[in-house]
Design a protein around this nucleic acid. Structure first.
Length: 204
DNA sequence: TACGGGATCTGT
DNA sequence: CAGATCCCGTAA
């Protein structure tokens, strides 16, 4: 899918809405990474999850702590955490300042594939399939938490192409909404969205 | 200070 | 389906 040269970073105000509104709106948008060596890779966002206040699966559900405090801040900031001691997960903080919530970015279709990634290990469309794998592929770790999503930090978001937006409005593309993955709490909440027929999306 | 679990992924 | 591996939240 072509990327228009006129794309601008999505402004922080766009994220100042309920996570359940932002999560589907992020499908078809682009996560853009500029690596330390200067290479720029784009990932089409194909799977997201919303985490809201009063949501038992949300990391700040019990109380505000050092780790989750960024989710209480203004929207449009990254929230990255380490899980199972080996993988990182990337969220974008949403909603009003003071309202803890975020959207987890779960899967991307990456283009181009960075040259240093071992293609024998994975099919190209599986390189960024999963929240841990996309952070590994894009070299996102705890250094990237609590950062604004701007080119100056090497990580930002861009809106859908006009083509994607048209296909969506015409009904040629439709999203699937269902329950979230890998949780022990809030299992029944249907706050995962994905592009069907996309082989980077989590199974289940 | 100690302990156990987790919004994951991989290889068996 | 178990193991890797470490930070953080909770209890003491």
């Amino acid at each position: 899918m072509p990327t228009p040269s006129h794309s601008q970073p999505i402004p922080t105000t766009w994220f100042s809405r309920c996570a359940t509104a932002v999560a589907p709106d992020l499908l078809g948008c682009w996560l853009v990474r500029r690596f330390p060596n200067g290479l720029i890779a784009r990932g089409l966002i194909v799977e997201t999850e919303a985490y809201t206040p009063n949501d038992p699966a949300m990391h700040a559900y019990r109380r505000r702590t050092a780790r989750n405090s960024v989710m209480f801040g203004p929207a449009g900031i990254t929230y990255v955490y380490l899980i199972y001691g080996m993988y990182h997960c990337l969220n974008v903080v949403t909603d009003q300042d003071g309202t803890p919530s975020a959207v987890l970015i779960r899967a991307l279709q990456l283009d181009p594939i960075p040259t240093w990634i071992d293609l024998k290990r994975d099919k190209p469309h599986r390189i960024a399939a999963g929240p841990g794998k996309l952070c590994r592929a894009l070299q996102i770790d705890l250094n990237h938490t609590a950062q604004p999503l701007v080119p100056e930090r090497g990580l930002w978001l861009e809106h859908r192409t006009p083509q994607f937006q048209m296909d969506l409005e015409r009904g040629a593309i439709a999203f699937t909404q269902t329950t979230r993955i890998g949780l022990t709490q809030g299992v029944e909440l249907p706050w995962r969205w994905y592009l069907p027929d996309c082989n980077a999306v989590s199974k289940k």
